[in-house]
Amino acid sequence: MKQSLFHTHKRNISKAIHFNKMMTWIATGISIFIFFLIFSLLYIILSKGLPKMSVHFLIGLPEEIDAGGGVGPFLLNSFYILILSLIMSLPIGIGTGIFLAEYAPNNTFTEFVRTSVESLASVPSIVFGLFGYVLFVEYFQIGVTIIGASVTLALLNLPVLARVTEEAITAVPKELREASFALGATKSKTILKVVLPAAMASILTGISLAACRAFGESAIILLTGGTSTSGVMWDFNPLSEGGTLPVHLWYVQSEALVEDAQEIANKSAAILVVITLLISTTIRLPLWIKEKISQLKNR
């Protein structure tokens, strides 16, 4: 009797161990498979688009019917709208983050702001697009424009910026603030001169995240910026049409009449991927270098 109990126990344990091994392999297998899949997708996009890339394509004007057009104005608009929207959303987003992290009293108003930030972050981009459409096309009657697109895009950035700023500031140790107060600094001075610089690294990462999202956004731009541009390169008039590269990619892929539509789509997708990778890595690069230097110093 005792012997058999011992044996069943042993059998159970060995079963559990085998099961453990099997599940470990399965988790490893799935992870590796997914990462392999993602890498191959990126590789396909880049290998399809990059080899035929030329400067003419990057800054050339688009063609309606003939092959050989570029995406210059769309690319320019993408950056222009991104920068305008960041200029508008950075102060308000960071201000909200500071409020939530430093000032927010424990009351209904704070609760209301916190709920608004989280709800805004989850509002589907198409709803932002419709809001911008009502505001600029129907209410102000200025049609689809660069300025309309960037204001609407700024609204999309706000919650992301507010949240990352709050997280970054909360992570700053309390001692820094106390030291600053002890030196006689006011609260605003403490925040501006001590807390913000200390939190700068994580805030920058957050900004790069928001910038990537805004750069690739297409539903909002389609509704508030339109699908085409003014048709001239280096046009900085905020009232001209504001089609961006993501919208152009959609247009070319699904509606365009151009002969080489597929090639334009391939190249545009490759540019988009390269630029988003660049945005997220270049903003992190200084941090990474700083980290490495401090590591070397500590050694």
Binding site: I44, L249, W250, Q262, A265, L272, V273, T276, T281
Partner: peptide, 16 residues
């Protein structure tokens, strides 16, 4: 990095 890749690129991959 993947979170930052534009959704339109995924759509393009899907359709091609």
């Amino acid at each position: 990095l993947l979170v930052g890749i534009p959704s339109i690129v995924y759509g393009y991959l899907g359709s091609t």
